[in-house]
Nucleic acid binder design. Structure first.
Length: 305
DNA sequence: GCACATCTA
DNA sequence: CTCCTAGATGTGC
């Protein structure tokens, strides 16, 4: 992983638009994740630049977690010139909250006896798991901080927010059982596009559906998966979103087939008068190709990509 | 159990 | 109403 000079002398008074470089991000991310793998066999990637590491026991044989964090941070900054923040605690939720506490190059540790104290002053919008919708409801109830949440009854949480309420009730009291999940199984593969100009003509819509079906088909093949359900997603010019799906007995993988199914769902909707802002196609009900299917494809030299 | 909408990251 | 991808959950049938 060669060090990359991403930032040059940028004039302070000018807005400079830097084009994205996803290849570099992917490569850098892979490298950083390889460092995680060097530290522990049990880590969960959650984004290009984020992961949960279970370092209860670790490959460095280092019981001091602050030293483990230091090792990771130093190595990343040395090799990539990027900084990162680390949060350390006894569960994933608190570790995440801790990592947000000091950025961009911080280390924060939350010990069990201080968990509730730590959360008390934090505004609810910073809580992992509380999004826009929950926030609004809570603000309407005059609840703004972790401390406000801690004063609520479990019943109120559950009655207002269901299962998520139960999870959040425990979290604000420092309890979270979510395991570090090393490799998670992919459950859907999909693509969507928002168009600069709303689509009106059937011709355009067919073209875009073909394009999306193509992308999804390619991804399926690359990941050696096929699925039984095709989901079509549409959003019109009024931002109304619908999804419609068709499930089959047999697996679908071919892009032509995906397109035909998506088109069929679209035609059934009978909305050719609407201006389409977004189209999406997703395959779910996924399963990996069997060994036989994979070897057949390789044998017929159709495989890969 | 499926279809669909909504919420969250 | 940034846009995109994906998972989880609630609701209705």
């Amino acid at each position: 992983m060669p060090a990359q000079q991403a930032i040059e002398l940028i004039p302070r008074d000018k807005l400079v638009i830097v084009p994205p470089n996803f290849e570099l991000y992917r490569k850098t991310s892979d490298y950083i994740h390889s460092i995680f793998g060097e530290v522990t066999g049990n880590y969960q990637s959650v984004a290009l630049d984020e992961a949960y590491l279970d370092v209860t026991v670790n490959k460095l044989n280092e019981p001091n977690t602050l030293k483990v964090a230091n090792y990771i941070q130093q190595k990343i900054v040395r090799e990539t010139h990027l900084t990162c923040s680390v949060g350390i605690s006894y569960n994933k939720f608190l570790a995440k909250m801790a990592s947000d506490y000091r950025k961009p190059f911080g280390r924060t540790i939350i010990l069990g006896q201080y968990a509730e104290d730590f959360l008390r002053p934090i505004p609810i919008e910073k809580f992992n798991g509380i999004g826009k919708a929950m926030q609004k409801k809570l603000h309407d109830m005059d609840i703004y901080t972790g401390g406000d949440l801690q004063n609520l009854d479990q019943d109120v949480f559950i009655n207002t927010f269901g299962k998520m309420g139960y999870v959040m009730f425990r979290r604000v009291h420092g309890i979270d059982d979510a395991p570090v999940e090393g490799h998670r199984v992919r459950k859907s593969i999909g693509r969507e596009r928002t168009y600069n100009q709303n689509l009106v003509l059937n011709e355009q819509i067919e073209k875009e559906l073909k394009f999306l079906a193509d992308l999804v088909g390619k991804d399926l093949k690359k990941q050696r998966q096929h699925g039984k359900t095709v989901v079509l997603k549409l959003r019109n010019s009024d931002f109304e979103t619908v999804t419609k799906r068709m499930t089959f007995q047999d697996y679908v993988q071919d892009k032509g087939e995906i397109y035909r199914i998506a088109k069929e769902i679209y035609d059934k909707l009978d909305i050719s008068d609407q201006k389409i802002r977004l189209l999406g196609i997703t395959l779910t009900n996924l399963d990996p190709l069997s060994y036989e299917e994979v070897s057949l494809k390789l044998f017929t030299s159709e495989g890969n990509k």
